[in-house]
Design a protein around this nucleic acid. Structure first.
Lengths: 235, 235
DNA sequence: TCAATAGTGTCTGTTAGACATTATGGA
DNA sequence: TCCATAATGTCTAACAGACACTATTGA
């Protein structure tokens, strides 16, 4: 399943010609009440205790995005349900592939899909990351920042939920991704205003309290200009 | 002035070993009522009519940011007053340096500094860009997007104004950067709330109407949490 | 005086956040 | 019945946008 004819996620240093740049993937999944990031063990037998971000070089003719998705699938066994580029990292920092440059991608996989992980991978809670090479540590931090920043512009939370979900589940996912609690009534009002979800006829039966209605992700066209002059988070 | 011992901004293709990636700079300046982007003529005598974004490879030991600032200064003669990385571009698209990958940076220079431009450069209004290689065109578009997006998080407008400026000048700069008109009273209220500027004792004498007070950029600590649950511009 | 620009006061509709209340099922 | 969770109604403070008004200079 993991050998798809492409190089492995932790390429041997001894490869014939060194690649000019690596593509590194920061993959997140919900785990408990916080996010976890995927790391893999070093292939190098002398450094089996070191952890790395999944990375590889791009195959000839392969787009950056395709390479990142391939690396993610190789590392965790399933396709990422959302992925975007974070940026390029270099500046002479240390990287396990010894490349001058690395292009970081951030992605997510639903937690249901993370149960069976290839043997050399492990999920680390974002609050206790393993020791990484300097450049990969910078990419991990930037990946988490990018994930949270882009939540406002991409339907990331929905890509981590099943097709049908309750509003409480959706709110919990937003809280987990953002790392902070949200106000229930405000959350639902804001959600209502965006026309991102539509109610289904199904209700959840299990559990103790009042049943919750299931919703599905169904974004409507889009709304007019947002109000305001925002200077918000200036330096 | 332009020959600083580094490669020129439009390196000859015939260089001994091809660089693995280029660094490309999208430089903007206010020109009239809109932004203009800097392009340079191709060095290649067969293609003197082609335009390019300033680009080069990074020198050994040079950081990405330092290289981008050097390229910008070489291309327009003065230092950029703000610059950030946009991202990595590749995917097999055409690029004048024939590299597999390009790292784009976006920056700004005040319009006062753009009067004397090295001979092979020219400013193009963002609404009429010249024909560029596919990858550079993508970088130009992404650079403008990045500039406008990051205005809310970086004091870009202030980097395009002299140390002392009037609130009308500041608002005009925001309008030029964002490409849209803003409401005067709301603009000033929002500015007040951010504590980004402080008044000086100086007033502008010139001109017809009532004199305007000069302000200076002087950001105070930073404010508490911003309100709200924002889903704004979801897909 | 008028023209032009700077700066401010006030009103209104919208919304975030808080709180309370109702609704509905299981134990 | 009580408890737990879902869902909604109402109040308030903050704020964006609009408008009008005052202030101060030069022509």
């Amino acid at each position: 399943m993991r050998d798809r004819g492409f190089p492995t996620t932790t390429p041997a240093r001894a490869s014939s010609r060194r690649s000019p740049f690596s593509i590194d993937v920061i993959l997140f999944t919900p785990r408990g009440q916080q996010l976890a990031a995927l790391c893999v063990r070093a292939n190098d037998p002398r450094a089996r205790e070191r952890w790395l971000l999944p990375h590889d070089s791009a195959a000839p003719g392969e787009t950056l995005d395709a390479a990142a998705r391939r690396i993610a699938k190789t590392a965790c066994g399933v396709d990422a349900t959302w992925m975007e580029q974070v940026g390029a990292f270099g500046d002479g920092t240390r990287h396990p592939a010894d490349t001058e440059l690395s292009v970081a991608f951030v992605g997510v996989v639903p937690s249901d899909d993370t149960v069976k992980l290839p043997g050399d991978g492990a999920w680390f809670g974002v609050s206790e990351p393993p020791a990484l090479a300097v450049r990969q540590r910078a990419m991990l931090d930037a990946g988490l920042d990018a994930l949270r920043t882009r939540m406002d512009y991409a339907p990331i939370a929905f890509r981590l939920l099943p097709e049908r979900f309750t509003l409480s589940e959706l709110q919990a996912m937003y809280e987990l991704l953002l790392g902070k609690r949200l106000h229930k009534a405000s959350f639902r009002r804001a959600l209502q205003a965006t026309s991102l979800v539509e109610a289904t006829e199904e209700w959840r039966s299990e559990g103790r309290g009042r049943p919750a209605q299931f919703f599905r992700f169904a974004p409507k066209k889009r709304r007019g200009a947002r109000r305001g002059v925002r200077f918000d988070t200036l330096t």
